[in-house]
């Protein structure tokens, strides 16, 4: 059992890839936003890469352990400390019963991950332990963790003293600027050439009005092809309106003139176009980006995006760990 002393900012239990199979009833997959760091945390403590762990956002939790455990902290640097002493990241570490792990505010990156050997053993909902906070599904009582709660942990072994070498970690940046891969489509033919160029050549600012449902971007105006104007009226009155359609996770959803990247807890459908889609391999960067930081988009093919995802999965394996 792990006791929550301070919850942090919407710290939640997630598993990977999350809640699949219920998209047609409107359930998003949820799961960790930076699944690269998340999987490595699990691999470090000997869990399956997708086992249930904690996602900490911008402001981390304080946890107290009532039993010995092997744990790992990866992702954003929240200056973790064990009983007040600096706690090494990207390593498996043995903690003793009675010790307290405290994460602070994110210094570099936005989201940190905590894995514990054996993994969290909260109740599965629709085949996943992931938290979908908005609808109260999964996690602990449907929500992110709260102070005073006790988080159940399954029995697990885990070897302390393992480390993820630098070359297998995501390069979490400090310069407030990110290059995010995008694939064209499904509705890229609604945007004219000038609009496409503007999208790909501008710096977009990540709004503070962003959370696990959507990342709102601020930037230049969008311009459209004839398709956006010459359409049956049931599409809606705005150029970016379309007859309600299914939304892929990662869709760059154009609500009027405001692009919103639909992320892990996003809607399954709606009446706006999605000219571009952020592929899964770039999600770790979204998870580590902070409000006010700049996003640049780089067009890649579907095949290239799929290749990038495979390259990340190859890094998230036990064979890549070394002794600390």
């Amino acid at each position: 059992m792990i006791k929550v002393l301070k919850a942090g900012l919407e710290t939640s239990i997630q598993d990977y890839p999350g809640r699949y199979g219920y998209w047609n009833q409107g359930f998003p997959p949820s799961g960790p936003m930076d699944s690269w760091s998340f999987r490595l945390a699990n691999v470090l403590v000997g869990n399956l890469p997708g086992a249930a762990g904690l996602e900490c956002q911008f402001l981390g939790p304080t946890l107290s352990f009532d039993a010995d455990a092997v744990i790992a902290v990866t992702g954003a640097d929240m200056r973790p400390a064990l009983d007040g002493e600096p706690f090494p990241m990207w390593q498996s570490v043995a903690v003793r019963a009675g010790q307290t792990l405290a994460l602070g505010a994110a210094r570099v990156g936005g989201r940190a991950y905590i894995a514990v050997a054996g993994a969290f053993a909260n109740e599965e909902k629709l085949g996943s332990r992931s938290t979908f906070n908005k609808a109260g599904v999964g996690g602990i009582d449907g929500h992110s963790i709260k102070a005073g709660q006790e988080l159940p942990v399954a029995e697990g072994g885990g070897t302390p003293g393992l480390l993820v070498p630098n070359e297998h970690r995501p390069d979490i940046r400090t310069d407030r600027s990110w290059t995010i891969e995008v694939c064209a489509g499904p509705n890229d033919d609604w945007i004219d050439e000038a609009g496409k160029e503007r999208f790909l050549n501008s710096a977009w600012t990540l709004s503070a009005k962003s959370d696990r449902t959507g990342f709102r971007l601020e930037g230049p105006e969008w311009t459209f092809t004839e398709k956006a104007y010459k359409k049956p009226k049931e599409h809606g009155s705005l150029p970016s309106n379309i007859i309600d359609q299914g939304y892929p996770m990662g869709a760059i959803n154009l609500a009027g003139q405001t692009p919103i990247i639909l992320v892990n807890d996003g809607p399954s459908m709606g009446g706006f176009i999605n000219p571009y889609t952020v592929p899964s391999a770039a999600f770790w960067k979204l998870g580590q980006a902070k409000p006010g930081e700049r996003l640049h988009f780089r067009l890649v093919s579907v095949a290239e995006a799929q290749h990038l995802a495979k390259e990340i999965a190859k890094r998230c394996v036990r064979e890549n760990l070394v002794n600390a």
Binding site: C183, P248, V278, A305, Q306
Partner: peptide, 16 residues
Amino acid sequence: LPAGDRYLLIEFGNEM
């Protein structure tokens, strides 16, 4: 219509 690395959108028409 391709939609990222894991999704495909199939459109049958453009009316209600």
